[in-house]
C-alpha cells in the first residue's frame, strides 16, 4: 500500500510539473509582441485576419487559450504551421508534419551522442580510477577538465574549421538521412555528434572516476576481494554497477543542456532538426509550433528523468533496501 501511495504521489507531482511547464510556455508565447495575424499573413484581408486570430484564440484570455491548446495537444492536434507566402486558405501544413520530419534527426543525433559519450567515458573513467593519482590520470583529467570548459558552439566551430575547411575531410554543412545512404549519413553526423560529445565525455568520465574511487573504499569491495573474487569481476559486478547509477542520473540531468546544445549545433552545421525548427519558429512567430514543440521537449525531459528515477533501485541494490525500511 505505501508503495502504491508513493507511486501515485510521484505521478501527481509529475502532472503538476507538466501543467506548470506548459503554462509557462503559454505565458512566454503569449508575450510575443506584434499582431500575430499581420505577422503571419501581411497581405490577408481584415476578415481573414479576424478569422486567424479567432482560430489561434489570441483574443480570448490566457486561460481559455491555454486549455484550448491543451485539449488539442492531448488529442494529438499540434496546430497548423503557417508558412510565409501562402494565403490563409492554403495553409494546411501541420506542426506535427514538420515535427515528424525534424524529430527523428535530432533524436538520432542525441542517441548517437549519448551512446558515443558513454562508450568513451566508461572505459576512460574506470582506467582513471584504477590509475588514480598517477601521471596518466593527471594528464587525462586535466585535458578533460579543459574540454568541459569550452562552450558547445566553439567546439562545433573548431571542428567545422579543422575537419571541414582545413583538411576537407568532411562536408561541414547539411544532413543526410539513413535512407539516402548509410555511409553518407554517418559522415554527415560525425562532426555534430563529436561537438556535442566532448563536453559530455568530460563530465561523465570525471563523475565515474570519482564515484569508482569512493566505491572501491567500501566494505563490500574489501569483502569481495577477501572472498578471492577476481579483480575484473569485482570491478564490473561490484564497482561499476552502483557507479553506473550516478552516470545514468548525470545523463538524465544533462538531457536539458544536450537539447540546448543541439539547437546550437544544428544552426552551425545547418541540420534541419527540432532545434533549427524552433529557432526559425521563434523568428517567424509561429505560436502553435513554438508552444507544442517546447511542450514536447519539456515532457520528454520530465519523463526521461522519471524513468531514470524508477530504474534506480533495479540497478543499485542499496537503494532498494533503504526504501524497504
Amino acid at each position: 500500500m505505501p508503495k502504491l501511495f508513493r507511486i501515485t504521489q510521484r505521478l501527481s507531482q509529475v502532472v503538476l510539473v507538466l501543467f506548470f511547464v506548459t503554462f509557462l510556455v503559454t505565458i512566454l508565447v503569449r508575450l510575443l509582441p506584434g499582431d500575430i495575424a499581420t505577422t503571419l499573413f501581411p497581405f490577408a484581408t481584415e476578415n481573414e485576419k479576424i478569422a486567424i486570430r479567432d482560430e489561434l484564440g489570441v483574443n480570448s484570455n490566457i486561460f481559455v487559450y491555454y486549455f484550448r491548446w491543451l485539449g488539442n495537444f492531448l488529442t494529438g492536434d499540434l496546430g497548423i504551421y503557417y508558412s510565409a507566402g501562402q494565403s490563409y486558405e492554403e495553409a494546411s501544413l501541420t506542426v506535427w508534419a514538420m515535427l515528424s520530419q525534424t524529430i527523428p534527426r535530432t533524436l538520432l543525433i542525441m542517441v548517437y551522442t549519448l551512446g558515443f559519450s558513454l562508450l568513451c567515458s566508461i572505459p576512460l573513467g574506470m582506467l582513471l580510477a584504477y590509475k588514480a593519482d598517477t601521471r596518466i590520470d593527471k594528464v587525462i583529467s586535466n585535458i578533460l577538465f579543459g574540454l568541459s570548459s569550452i562552450p558547445n558552439f566553439a567546439v562545433g566551430l573548431g571542428l567545422a574549421y579543422i575537419i571541414g575547411v582545413k583538411f576537407e575531410l568532411l562536408n561541414p554543412i547539411g544532413y543526410i538521412t539513413w535512407a539516402e545512404g548509410p555511409a553518407e549519413h554517418i559522415k554527415s553526423v560525425i562532426m555534430p555528434v563529436l561537438s556535442l560529445s566532448l563536453g559530455l565525455i568530460a563530465t561523465f568520465t570525471r563523475l565515474l572516476r570519482a564515484d569508482i574511487i569512493s566505491t572501491l573504499k567500501e566494505d563490500f569491495v574489501t569483502m569481495a576481494s577477501s572472498k578471492g573474487l577476481s579483480n575484473r569481476w569485482i570491478l564490473w559486478r561490484h564497482v561499476f554497477r552502483p557507479s553506473s547509477l550516478s552516470l545514468l542520473t548525470a545523463a538524465a540531468l544533462n538531457m536539458g543542456s544536450l537539447i540546448g546544445g543541439a539547437v546550437i549545433i544544428e544552426v552551425i552545421f545547418a541540420i534541419n532538426g527540432v532545434g533549427m525548427f524552433l529557432v526559425t519558429s521563434i523568428a517567424l512567430r509561429q505560436y502553435l509550433a513554438i508552444q507544442s514543440t517546447v511542450a514536447l521537449i519539456a515532457i520528454a525531459y520530465i519523463l526521461f528523468n522519471l524513468i531514470v528515477d524508477a530504474f534506480m533501485p533495479k540497478i543499485d541494490p542499496r537503494i532498494r533496501s533503504h526504501h524497504g525500511a
Binding site: 511547464v21 543542456s257 539547437v263 521537449i297
Partner: peptide, 13 residues
C-alpha cells in the same frame, strides 16, 4: 517546470 525547458530555449523565447 522551469528547469525542464532547456536554458537556451527559455532565453530565446
Amino acid at each position: 517546470a522551469i528547469s525542464a525547458i532547456p536554458v537556451i530555449i527559455i532565453a530565446l523565447l
